[in-house]
């Protein structure tokens, strides 16, 4: 087939989108939502993985002490911690240490700390090493029994929560994806049907004058691909905006960040290209595939 012929068919496909804009828009929306939900699930999944991977000392318990406790009381707590059965090592970490450590880990967030008026929001605490991970829950409850304890954070416990979360997200995502796949296909089927209906005279005449099957189908293929392509672009823009606002919102919550570990949240800039490409490829592919299947079904060529 000559290049001018290909161009003609592609133009026809683009024109189809326009002639059939209501249906194309409906398909665009459904594909957009599908891509968004799938994309959000995948990005969330990777973030959880990153968080799990970022927690290196899985046999460590972080103990944060109440602001009101004085130097002597802090020392006393240190001694109490060391006495607990199963604890192998206890290290003190002042709030200044913690603050500096955070700055080293993620220098790009200095501005956020500045915005807090240079008021160190962190607290003094201990890092408690445990010889046997299985004893972590027992030791945590003992630590919680002590006075002047503000907050106890066990990496292992958190890892379990994350793993559970990952499992649930994966399951829900699979269910959503299956449902959306069905809805998307129904939408594409109807759009293709409508598009074929708008062009039925042309198709009939095309058949009479000896058009090959691929000639008749190509514009519909292009139509599906173009619609899917734009859904991909749309999904990307929404994901970008949503991710960044969520990121900003979360990073401002120092307490939340303390738990998650700020450096463990993936920055959008580092995944932007992949997100864009995945959306565009997935959108175009689904759109094109759907059209091909349903063109075969609806036009008996």
């Amino acid at each position: 087939m000559k290049l001018s012929g290909v161009k003609y068919l592609v133009d026809q496909g683009v024109e189809n989108v326009w002639k059939n804009k209501m249906m194309a828009f409906a398909t665009f929306c459904v594909l957009l939502i599908s891509l968004l939900l799938v994309g959000a699930s995948v990005i969330f999944y990777f973030n959880i993985n990153s968080m799990i991977g970022g927690i290196s000392d899985k046999n460590e318990i972080a103990v944060f002490i109440n602001d009101k406790a004085d130097k002597a009381r802090i020392t006393e707590i240190g001694q109490d911690l060391a006495k607990i059965k199963g604890v192998s090592e206890v290290t003190f970490e002042s709030k200044e240490d913690a603050f500096n450590k955070m700055l080293v880990q993620m220098p790009e967030y200095e501005k956020i700390f500045e915005s807090l008026g240079n008021d160190n929001p962190l607290v003094d605490g201990y890092r408690v090493k445990v010889s046997n991970i299985d004893e972590v829950p027992q030791i945590i409850s003992e630590i919680r029994g002590l006075n002047d304890i503000y907050y106890v954070k066990a990496s292992q416990e958190f890892v379990n929560v994350l793993k559970e979360l990952r499992r649930v997200v994966t399951m829900v995502a699979c269910a959503i994806i299956a449902a959306l796949a069905v809805v998307s296909m129904i939408m594409i089927s109807n759009t293709t049907k409508a598009s074929i209906f708008t062009r039925r005279e042309e198709i009939q005449i095309m058949k009479y004058v000896g058009a090959t099957n691929s000639f008749i189908r190509t514009p519909f293929f292009v139509e599906g691909m173009v619609t899917g392509f734009f859904s991909g672009i749309g999904a990307f823009i929404i994901t970008w905006a949503a991710y960044n606002s969520l990121f900003e919102l979360l990073t401002k919550q120092v307490n939340v960040m303390n738990v998650i570990g700020l450096g463990n949240i993936i920055q959008f800039s580092s995944i932007r290209v992949y997100v864009l490409l995945s959306y565009i490829i997935a959108g175009s592919f689904i759109g094109a595939l759907g059209s091909v299947i349903f063109t075969r079904k609806h036009i008996n060529v």
């Binding site: 042309e202 004058v209 000639f215």
Partner: peptide, 9 residues
């Protein structure tokens, strides 16, 4: 259109 269908130059 007829000539396009048969991919004429």
């Amino acid at each position: 259109f007829v000539l396009r269908v048969i991919d004429a130059p």
